[in-house]
């Protein structure tokens, strides 16, 4: 029997998998205009934008690694958008070819035909920041190649001469970008969490990837973006002016003994989208 909530959620997955949000496309277009015509960076960015156009026109996944799915659901929708309905939508989207079979049992190695299992998809019920506005469901699809590039540092870090201050944080973030090179499918977006425990660090850093690229950056974020791009790593690590499209930083309280800096790397295929209910 058709369920309108499941249908809308299935549509959200299809859209997220096949087309990038406008702010990400604009950032990729701006990056292309900064590169010299005929350079490796310019050729890579052209292929990326062509790819986005083909995928959006056909409604097919823009990357074959459709990644892991994380839903952020407004607390007020808890009874309407249940984990069961989200799973039904994931199963339907998988059957329709919008998602690759991407869910592997970590012990047996068996692949799930419908991408549904314990913790897959990941579902977080969140209290929206500002009041007002209609309740929404946001989806983030993140490929494995970029997830492999996320890192966590513990300050102080002697190797980086990084102490327990913002200068130490800066060193961790720039080191992460240099170590990642093009492997996370640059130009990507960084979500950074200063503080928190290890688990909160990764969760909060990943959540920052939902923030739009066209919002006004903080001074520290702008500096990190400028310095990261001056490393010259470029699209897919072949050199160029744009290594990152954005840097989003958040902070959480910590205990005296711990000072973590967590960096979540998102590939250029920033697949995030939300719908309102």
């Amino acid at each position: 029997m058709a369920d309108s909530t499941v249908e809308r959620l299935t549509g959200l997955i299809r859209e997220t998998s096949s087309s990038l949000p406008a702010d990400v496309l604009a950032a990729l277009g701006a990056a292309l205009r900064r590169e010299k015509r005929g350079s490796p960076a310019s050729e890579v960015l052209k292929t990326i934008l062509d790819n986005c156009a083909v995928a959006a026109a056909r409604g097919t996944p823009l990357c074959q690694d459709t990644g892991s799915l994380t839903f952020f659901v407004d607390e007020s929708l808890r009874r309407r958008v249940t984990p069961e309905k989200l799973k039904a939508a994931v199963a339907a989207a998988t059957a329709a070819g919008c998602l690759r079979r991407n869910t592997i049992d970590a012990v047996t190695g068996a692949s799930r035909d419908d991408n549904c299992a314990e913790g897959a998809p990941a579902v977080h019920y969140v209290r929206p920041a500002g009041g007002g506005g209609r309740p929404s469901v946001a989806l983030l699809m993140k490929g494995g190649g970029s997830e492999n590039m996320s890192r966590q540092y513990s300050l102080p870090d002697a190797g980086l001469a990084a102490g327990r201050d913002l200068e130490g944080v800066r060193r961790c973030v720039l080191d992460a970008v240099q170590k990642t090179q093009g492997y996370g499918c640059a130009p990507g977006v960084l979500g950074v969490c200063i503080g928190g425990d290890r688990a909160a660090g990764y969760a909060v850093a990943k959540e920052q990837l939902l923030r739009p690229l066209d919002e006004r950056p903080g001074r520290f974020e702008a500096r990190l973006l400028r310095e990261a791009n001056s490393l010259g790593i470029g699209p897919m690590g072949l050199g160029g002016r744009t290594t990152l499209l954005g840097v989003k930083v958040a902070a959480r309280t910590r205990v005296p003994a711990s000072f973590f800096v967590t960096v979540a790397y998102m590939c250029w295929a920033v697949r995030r989208r939300s719908i309102q209910f």
Binding site: T47, N51, M236
Partner: peptide, 13 residues
Amino acid sequence: IQAVGGGGAAYAD
């Protein structure tokens, strides 16, 4: 030759 990661749709084309 480096192909573009994530370029699945364009390469399929």
